[in-house]
């Protein structure tokens, strides 16, 4: 399980961080805490393109995405 907090980081750093977490631990479930709708869309698009299942929830004004690799 990898946890990322990319709130307040501007585009494209949330995507860069998520990608790095995916490359470092390809079989890990990754949770990403983020702030803007744009970052949420971008990270979701990256995850979908790499075959991750994406679960989205709202957390006190922010968003948490749970990315589960398809092989798991």
């Amino acid at each position: 399980m990898t946890e990322l907090d990319v709130r307040g980081l501007s585009c494209p750093i949330p995507v860069v961080r998520t990608k790095k977490a995916m490359d470092d631990n390809p079989r890990d479930v990754i949770t990403v805490l983020l702030e803007t709708v744009t970052s949420k869309e971008n990270v979701t698009r990256l995850a979908a393109s790499r075959g991750y299942k994406v679960k989205e929830e709202a957390v006190s004004g922010d968003y948490r995405l749970t990315l589960t690799p398809s092989a798991k």
């Binding site: 585009c11 494209p12 995507v15 860069v16 990608k19 990256l46 393109s49």
Partner: peptide, 19 residues
């Protein structure tokens, strides 16, 4: 759409994304 005339070129190299 978040259209960006620099981000478009960036994303093809950074994440292989053509959106």
């Amino acid at each position: 759409t978040r259209m960006c005339f620099v981000g478009g070129w960036r994303d093809i190299f950074l994440v292989k994304d053509t959106y």
